[in-house]
Amino acid sequence: MGKFALALHDWDEPIRLVTEAAKNENLPLLSPMIGEKVNLDNPPSPENWWKAIN
């Protein structure tokens, strides 16, 4: 099994950029893990889950 890049940027670059932009504009942002269920009536606290993945 192998893998190869389909884009010219790091896999986490889009979420890093949008997270930083939301922070700079003081906007709320939910970024659940892929497949994670989110209850919008009781949203989870912000978490940068992608930082723990290599």
Rank of each mutant, 00 (worst) to 15 (best):
M33F: 11
N42C: 10
A7R: 12
N48A: 14
K51D: 11
P43T: 01
L8E: 04
N54Y: 02
A5V: 02
K3I: 15
E13N: 13
K3P: 11
L40R: 03
P44R: 02
W49P: 01
P46N: 01
L17V: 12
D10K: 07
P44H: 07
K51C: 10
P46S: 01
I15T: 00
K23L: 05
N26D: 15
L8W: 08
H9I: 15
I53H: 13
H9W: 15
V18T: 02
T19F: 00
N42Q: 09
N48K: 15
L6R: 05
E25W: 09
A5N: 10
N48I: 15
N42V: 08
V18S: 09
I53T: 01
T19P: 02
W49V: 06
T19L: 02
A5G: 09
L40S: 06
W50R: 01
S31R: 06
I15H: 00
A5Y: 10
S45K: 08
K37N: 13
A52V: 14
F4T: 12
D12P: 00
L8R: 06
D10W: 13
P43E: 06
N24I: 07
A7G: 14
P32D: 11
N42L: 05
V38M: 09
A21Q: 08
N39M: 04
N26L: 11
H9M: 14
E36G: 11
L40I: 05
L30M: 07
L17W: 12
P44W: 05
K23N: 05
P32E: 08
R16C: 01
L30I: 10
P46H: 05
N48P: 07
N48T: 15
